[in-house]
Design a binder for these strands. Structure first.
Length: 208
DNA sequence: GCCAACGTTGGC
DNA sequence: GCCAACGTTGGC
């Protein structure tokens, strides 16, 4: 998951075409810039900068331009990795200067390509992962600035129930990447998914 | 702490 | 290109 403090020493194996400098995320977020595209999918709309592997990613949609909302995972509880504390909760984001942080340290290249596809001002859920109670804690806008906490924490367990229901009944969350691509730390959300989650914010948790 | 899911690596 | 071994993610 994206740890703001993580550095890039292992990034070399992510994408041999162009390893990002550590502060890449911040400068990358320019509205005019064309996104790198997701290498996982068909690679449509871009010249192939990737070697052969461009075909086999399942599930996810193709055109990065079409992504409008995001979900960013971060760990709210302390955990040491190579001596570095991975903790970065939404409270930590709030405490940053300008309540803004640079989202570097994403290793997985697909996640990183999503990161590149983000545009300034787009909204993202701030998700707490690898913790006692995982779930959506707040809203940020890219590049990555605190917007607000949710009026209530929306736990993964609750989202999962919606996911199941929506699979059966063609609901908004039926393809939610959080469940279809488990380990992706930066993931796109459709507008419908984003808005559905927001619509649940003021519902009682037990209304599920 | 356990372990399933899944991404990456590298031998062949 | 296949696939087994290995490493990481992250829920439980």
């Amino acid at each position: 998951m994206p740890q703001l403090k993580k550095k890039w020493e292992r990034s070399a194996n992510l994408d041999e075409t162009e390893p990002l400098p550590k502060e890449a995320k911040c400068e990358k977020l320019e509205e005019k810039e064309t996104p790198a595209g997701m290498e996982g999918s068909s690679g449509r709309g871009q010249t192939s900068k990737k070697p052969s592997s461009t075909k086999k990613r399942s599930g996810t949609q193709v055109n990065p331009e079409s992504y409008s909302h995001w979900l960013l995972k971060s760990e709210p509880e302390s955990r040491l990795e190579n001596g570095v504390d991975m903790k970065f909760s939404i409270e930590d984001l709030k405490a940053q200067p300008n309540q803004t942080a640079c989202w570097d340290g994403v290793r997985n290249y697909q996640a990183r390509n999503f990161l590149r596809a983000m545009r300034i001002g787009q909204k993202a859920f701030f998700y707490h992962s690898n913790c006692k109670e995982p779930g959506i804690a707040g809203i940020v806008k890219v590049d990555v600035q605190f917007v607000r906490q949710l009026r209530r924490f929306i736990p993964l367990a609750e989202l999962k129930v919606y996911f199941w229901e929506h699979q059966a009944a063609e609901g908004a969350l039926k393809n939610m990447t959080l469940f279809t691509r488990q380990r992706l730390s930066v993931q796109p959300l459709t507008k419908e998914e984003y808005e559905f989650v927001l619509s649940v914010e003021d519902k009682k948790p037990n209304s599920v």
